[in-house]
Design a protein around this nucleic acid. Structure first.
Lengths: 145, 145
DNA sequence: TCCATAACATTTGCATACTAATGAATTTTG
DNA sequence: CAAAATTCATTAGTATGCAAATGTTATGGA
């Protein structure tokens, strides 16, 4: 290895760090999401609704886990979805600590649109890659988790 | 394609969406960053300092661009770094609109540690992947941006 | 049966992250 | 040369994102 190669290898480059690249990818995804937003839902609200559609009624704590959100975060997301009339909450019958969350009819009505938009958002996000690269990226990201 | 395959293909799965996977990867990176934090810097503060070390003194607007941050966001990050005594600001001589940001000696003193930690954080983040997969992931993420 | 531990949700506090509006300063255009 | 357009930074507002503390409830062990 020549001195030049050593120097290049040792120079810290933020642009090449996985964290920085993840951030850029995330920002681009956010922008694309904005272009295809259904209603005026945010990315996290979208994820919460998608999980409720998939799992049905569940506790707030469970929903947070399904949607990869901290318990304080999911509290806020559920509050805002309640304000939008898209989810409802009720106390659990067999565990007074629990709050059960479910989609309202209004929320249910959005699900198909959200799925359609979700597919389009993913398609647009991955557009710079070939199909093989797209599969590879999803696989590698999945392996990181 | 059989009906089963069609059904699986058409069922919307949040787990397989690139946005969701990016979120998970980001969260994991955040947790690893926390384990290796230098001082009590956050990921965005780290990025800002790394960019200042790389580019030298620049305007706040420019620093935001270098670090992939919104102008309102970089304002807050610079404020907090000033509070920590790691950066200083001065008005530009030739453009009164501009504020020039640079590292203080205290900030400079951190840079080597930050680079070392940065490498370790990236290494740990990519650890689940083989070296070839790591290169592939970085390349694909770079292609998405 | 009672106490310690754990679970669930809420609250507080701090740090982003971004849009939009605003004012000051600079640049461009007629 | 003056007005229009653009740039830079600040501010306000909203939405996360997470750690830590807190109170209530449930569970497990002695």
């Amino acid at each position: 290895m020549t001195e030049t190669e050593t120097t290049i290898e040792e120079t810290y480059q933020l642009d090449q760090q996985v964290g920085f690249l993840l951030r850029l990818a995330n920002q681009r995804h956010a922008a694309i999401f904005q272009d295809h937003a259904v209603g005026d839902l945010t990315r996290t609200q979208f994820a919460a609704i998608a999980r409720l559609a998939e799992h049905g009624r569940c506790s707030q704590n469970q929903l947070g886990r399904y949607a990869a959100m901290d318990i304080a975060t999911i509290k806020g997301v559920v509050d805002r979805l309640k304000q939008k009339g898209l989810v409802g909450t009720e106390p659990s019958q067999d565990d007074k600590r629990r709050s059960l969350i479910s989609l309202t009819p209004k929320g249910e009505a959005l699900v198909e649109d959200l799925h359609r938009a979700g597919r389009e958002i993913s398609r647009a996000t991955l557009a710079p890659l070939t199909p093989a690269e797209q599969r590879s990226l999803l696989k590698l990201l999945g392996k990181l988790a």
